[in-house]
Lab assay of single mutants.
Amino acid sequence: KSPLTGYVRFMNERREQLRAKRPEVPFPEITRMLGNEWSKLPPEEKQRYLDEADRDKERYMKELEQY
């Protein structure tokens, strides 16, 4: 499975939280809201997602080498 970027990891995590709080909001609007939230997120909060993405990318590269 391909590695996910930090942005995609953030979107996946927050999308479920936002949909639970506001189920009436259409999917494209949720994506737009989360995109704005990501762009305003402080670098230190973004870093968690970026670090997870880096670890996932390393895992993926190792799997490719073994293939």
Rank of each mutant, 00 (worst) to 15 (best):
E24T: 07
L18Q: 02
D54G: 08
R59G: 13
K57W: 03
K46S: 00
Y60E: 15
E13C: 04
L4P: 09
Y49S: 02
T31H: 08
S2V: 12
E29T: 03
F27Y: 14
V25I: 14
E63N: 06
Q47I: 00
R22Q: 13
A20I: 10
P28L: 11
E65L: 06
E29S: 03
P23E: 11
E29I: 00
Y49D: 02
R32L: 02
L64E: 11
W38L: 04
L50G: 14
Y7T: 07
K1E: 00
P43M: 09
F10N: 05
S2Q: 05
R32H: 04
V8S: 11
R14M: 09
R32Q: 10
P3A: 09
E65I: 01
P23K: 03
R9Y: 11
Q17Y: 06
Q47H: 02
V25Q: 09
A20Q: 11
D56V: 01
T31F: 00
T5R: 05
E24F: 09
Y7R: 11
L4C: 08
M33T: 12
Q17F: 08
T5G: 07
L64Y: 12
L50Y: 14
P23N: 05
Y60T: 15
P28I: 06
E29Q: 09
E58L: 05
R14Y: 05
N12T: 10
E65K: 08
Q47N: 06
R14F: 03
P23M: 02
P26S: 13
Q47T: 11
L50M: 14
R48T: 07
M33I: 00
Q47P: 01
P23A: 05
Q17A: 08
E63F: 01
P28M: 13
K46E: 02
A53Q: 10
V8Y: 10
Y60A: 15
D54R: 13
K57L: 03
T31P: 04
E65T: 08
R59K: 12
P26T: 10
V25Y: 02
T5F: 07
P28A: 15
P42I: 00
L50W: 09
A20C: 07
P23I: 05
D56L: 00
L50A: 15
T5C: 07
R55T: 13
F27R: 13
R22S: 10
R32E: 07
V8E: 15
K1Q: 00
N12R: 08
R15T: 15
R19K: 14
V25P: 04
Q66I: 05
E13Q: 07
M11N: 03
F27K: 14
E63G: 10
E45F: 01
N12H: 05
M11Y: 10
E63H: 08
T5D: 15
K62S: 09
Q17N: 05
S2G: 04
R48V: 09
L18N: 01
P28R: 14
R19Q: 08
K21C: 10
E24N: 13
M61F: 07
P3Q: 02
P23V: 07
Y60C: 12
A20P: 02
A20F: 03
K62V: 09
E24P: 08
P26H: 06
R14N: 02
S2L: 12
P3D: 07
L64K: 15
L41N: 00
E16I: 11
S2F: 04
V8F: 12
D54Y: 02
N12D: 06
L18S: 02
E24Y: 06
V25M: 13
M61Y: 06
A53T: 12
P3C: 08
E29P: 01
P43W: 02
E13P: 00
Y60P: 15
R48D: 06
K46M: 03
D54W: 06
M61D: 13
E45R: 03
Q17V: 11
F10V: 04
L50K: 13
Y49G: 02
A20K: 11
R48L: 05
R48E: 04
P43C: 08
E16Y: 00
R22C: 15
R14G: 01
E65F: 02
R32A: 08
P42S: 08
Q47S: 08
V25L: 15
D51R: 02
P26D: 12
P3M: 08
P42Q: 01
R15N: 05
R14A: 03
P26G: 07
K46C: 01
R22K: 09
L41M: 05
E16N: 09
E52F: 01
R48G: 05
E58K: 09
Q17L: 08
D56P: 10
E29M: 05
M61K: 11
R15S: 13
K1N: 12
R15W: 08
E63I: 00
I30E: 05
D54E: 13
R22Y: 15
Y7W: 08
D56R: 02
F27L: 15
M11A: 11
E29D: 04
L18G: 02
S2E: 09
I30V: 10
R55Q: 12
E45A: 09
S2R: 05
S2D: 08
L4F: 12
